[in-house]
């Protein structure tokens, strides 16, 4: 559905060129909810702007729903954009228009006749649970309601792709869950492909099927959620299944154990740890269910001389174990 290949974006500057995207290769499957995560400045926003064609790549190509966005002339690009819906962090509704008129805007742009517009707007507001707020103005709505309107507007022209740029970063946690629930529900009902740009791992855990980590304009890790979390010690695995920091004792060592129920059930993992006997203690750990997998990350504290035998014993039990630096 979405394919980026060798995508580079360089901003020329007097003090030296700024490389925002440095050779991105990425495929998002039809109907997937794909998260793109990274710190600010990692290139997330530039990536979205290239997807919408608001920014021309320096080199490489962007293909969305079979159209090579990066090669379209301006007029054709405007048409292609109607196949994409976009949801923004600050929603960007027009304050001068009522909720219904905001949702109607993309339909006006697409030249949909007035009567059909009214029907579609009513449908869309119903879809996002705001059927009765059509005549209100954005200023009269809460942040969560405004984002619902933003989603309704993005879906107006029945796009194949929904791009969400930090859709919940300005919302509280309860509202965030509602909005993400709505996004997943829409994907299930409409079969739409969703790309969510975010810096919050919680968003990825909540809705994403697959995820890409960007750093300095490059892909550091990418894949299905169940695959990346089971790559023990990988940056996304660590970020998605965080364990609390523990103060480290000079005389002792930390060993980290990771497992997924696909290979080892929790009780076996815990039994293997218990079998290490005295002197080995669990100091931090996380056990949770993510992407349908039960996952665990445990940190063990043990004396230096016990590290090598412990690692061997844990690996024999089918666990991923390694000393933490």
């Amino acid at each position: 559905m979405i394919e980026l290949s060798g995508l580079r974006k360089v901003y020329p500057a007097a003090a030296g060129d700024v490389v925002a995207l440095d050779g991105i290769d990425l495929v998002v499957e039809r109907g997937a909810v794909h998260g793109i995560v990274g710190r600010s400045g990692a290139g997330k926003s530039t990536l979205v702007r290239c997807l919408t064609g608001l920014e021309r790549p320096t080199s490489g190509s962007v293909t969305v729903d079979g159209r090579v966005i990066s090669a379209l002339p301006e007029a054709r690009l405007r048409e292609a954009r109607r196949a994409m819906g976009m949801v923004f962090q600050h929603v960007n509704l027009l304050d001068s228009r009522s909720v219904a008129a905001n949702v109607a805007f993309p339909l006006e742009v697409a030249g949909v006749p007035r009567r059909r517009r009214a029907e579609r707007v009513a449908e869309l507001l119903e879809l996002v649970g705001l059927g009765d707020r059509g005549t209100a103005y954005p200023a009269q709505l809460s942040g969560g309601q405004r984002q619902r309107v933003g989603i309704a507007r993005a879906l107006a022209t029945e796009p194949a792709v929904l791009l969400c740029d930090e859709p919940t970063s300005a919302l509280d946690s309860a509202t965030t869950r509602q909005i993400l629930g709505l996004v997943r529900d829409l994907r299930d009902r409409l079969g739409i492909t969703v790309v969510i740009i975010t810096h919050e791992m919680g968003v990825v855990r909540e809705v994403c099927d697959s995820v890409t980590l960007l750093e300095h304009g490059r892909v550091v890790q990418s894949g299905r959620l169940d695959d990346v979390v089971t790559q023990a010690g990988s940056p996304l695995s660590n970020a998605l299944i965080p364990v609390p920091d523990v103060p480290q004792d000079e005389a002792r060592r930390l060993v980290e154990v990771t497992y997924a129920t696909r290979t080892v059930p929790t009780h076996r993992a815990l039994a293997a740890v218990a079998a290490l006997g005295e002197e080995v203690d669990v100091v931090a750990g996380t056990i949770e269910t993510l992407a349908g997998l039960r996952l665990g990350r445990l940190q063990l504290d043990l004396p230096h001389r016990r590290v090598a035998p412990a690692l061997a014993a844990l690996r024999d039990a089918g666990l991923d174990a390694r000393e933490v630096a």
Partner: peptide
């Protein structure tokens, strides 16, 4: 952001000018 939103929806410059900026 409002201008960008209208552009992403495929608005022409004239539409952005009149229906977003002026309005």
């Amino acid at each position: 952001g409002k201008v960008e939103a209208a552009q992403v929806m495929g608005s022409s410059r004239a539409r952005v000018l009149l229906q977003v900026l002026v309005r």
